[in-house]
C-alpha cells in the first residue's frame, strides 16, 4: 500500500466519506421511491422526489401488479367542409389498428407504432380521470393537444379533397379472453367511450409536415 502524506490522506478520506455518504443517500432514496408508500417516504416525500425526478425515474412495475387485460384502441373521425360550406362527417379510422398492422411481422417495431399513440392514450386517461372528460392540471391540456396532433398528422389537412374542421375520438376497450383452459367467462365485446368534437385549426398542424 502506498504511503500517503497527511494532506493527501485528508483529501482522500474526506472525499471518500462524502462519496460513500452520497452513494448511500442516493440509493436509499431510490429504494424508498420504489418501495410501497411508508412512514419514512411520506415524511420525506419532497426530498425523495427531488432526487428521483426528473432524471432518475424508476418505472419498474413491469406487467405488475397485474398485466393489462384489455386491448385499448383509439379511433378517430373528422368532419370536413367543402366550398359551399357543406359539412361532411367521415368514417371512423382505427388509429390503433394502423399501429398494430405496422407491428405485425416486424422484429423491431418502431416507438412511433408501439409507444406513441399507446402512451398518448395513457397520458390522456391519467390526466382525465373523470367520466365527463374534464382535464386535471396543466397536463390535461397537453394530453389533449398531443392526442389531437397525433391524429392530425395521420389525417393531413384535407380528407377527400375537403378541409378538416373538427375531429372526434373514441376509445375502445376489449377484454382479452381468458385462457381456453380457464373456467372464467369474460365479455370480450369492445366498449366505447366517445369524446366530444374538437375544433381543428391551422395552428394545430404546426410542424406536422
Amino acid at each position: 500500500m502506498r504511503v500517503w502524506s497527511t494532506p493527501a490522506l485528508l483529501v482522500i478520506c474526506l472525499s471518500g466519506a462524502g462519496l460513500l455518504g452520497g452513494t448511500g443517500l442516493f440509493l436509499g432514496a431510490l429504494f424508498l421511491h420504489v418501495a410501497p408508500a411508508n412512514a419514512v417516504s411520506r415524511q420525506y416525500q419532497r426530498e425523495l422526489d427531488a432526487v428521483v425526478y426528473p432524471e432518475f425515474e424508476q418505472n419498474w412495475k413491469l406487467f405488475a401488479p397485474n398485466p393489462l387485460q384489455q386491448n385499448l384502441t383509439v379511433d378517430a373521425r373528422v368532419q370536413t367542409i367543402d366550398g359551399d360550406s357543406r359539412v361532411t362527417t367521415r368514417d371512423w379510422v382505427g388509429l390503433t389498428a394502423e399501429d398494430v398492422a405496422a407491428i405485425r411481422g416486424n422484429p423491431a417495431p418502431s416507438h412511433l407504432d408501439q409507444n406513441m399513440l399507446r402512451r398518448a392514450l395513457d397520458f390522456y386517461r391519467t390526466t382525465h380521470p373523470e367520466q365527463d372528460g374534464a382535464p386535471v392540471g396543466t397536463r390535461g391540456r397537453l394530453a389533449e393537444e398531443y392526442l389531437e396532433r397525433i391524429a392530425l398528422q395521420r389525417f393531413g389537412r384535407t380528407v377527400g379533397g375537403e378541409r378538416v374542421v373538427q375531429i372526434q375520438f373514441r376509445f375502445g376497450s376489449a377484454a382479452i379472453a381468458p385462457p381456453s383452459w380457464s373456467p372464467e367467462q369474460t365479455d370480450t365485446a369492445v366498449q366505447y367511450q366517445e369524446l366530444p368534437w374538437w375544433p381543428v385549426e391551422e395552428a394545430d398542424y404546426r410542424g406536422l409536415g
Binding site: 405488475a64 397485474n66 398485466p67 393489462l68 386491448n71 379472453a177 385462457p179
Partner: peptide, 22 residues
C-alpha cells in the same frame, strides 16, 4: 400482489396484447 400472477395466468395476457404481438 397481483391476482393474475397468483392464479398463474398472467403470461397469457401480454401474449394477447395487440401492441406486443408481432
Amino acid at each position: 400482489q397481483g391476482t393474475r400472477w397468483q392464479d398463474g395466468t398472467a403470461l397469457h395476457y401480454p401474449l394477447h396484447l395487440d401492441y406486443f404481438t408481432p
